[in-house]
Amino acid sequence: MKAGPLRGKRILVAKPGLDGHDIGAKVIAIALRDAGAEVIYTGLRKTPESIAKIAIEEDVDAVGLSILSGSHRELVRDTIRCLADLHGHNVPLFVGGTIPVEDRPELLSLGVRRIFTSEMKLSDVVDSIVAALR
């Protein structure tokens, strides 16, 4: 078996909020699996509280939030707070979806490690996650 670059990593791919489109999240989940990661997928419409609980129970190395609803600022802030409530302050957070350029500095300043958009090549997204978790 060829060892993928994410071998041994556990990554949560989560869909917070009310948007009902998870093709992107599933494509990312499969790409991360193919890079060797064990990917936990939450399914649609999760609250920040439940995402934090899952991240802690699954002892993940990173959390990826897929957000297409436009509520990314609130959802990211809440998820970070909920993670901290459960002693998960240092879990790396990635965000993907429709994130306007002007909102990105704020998310990064909250502690988001990387922001991915649909224009990016899938292999670049995976490479970026590999580099961030190295």
Partner: peptide, 14 residues
């Protein structure tokens, strides 16, 4: 676990 990549998608909890 994928026999090709060693990765896995874990979706039972959904």
């Amino acid at each position: 676990t994928s026999a090709v990549s060693g990765g896995a998608v874990l979706g039972d909890r959904i």
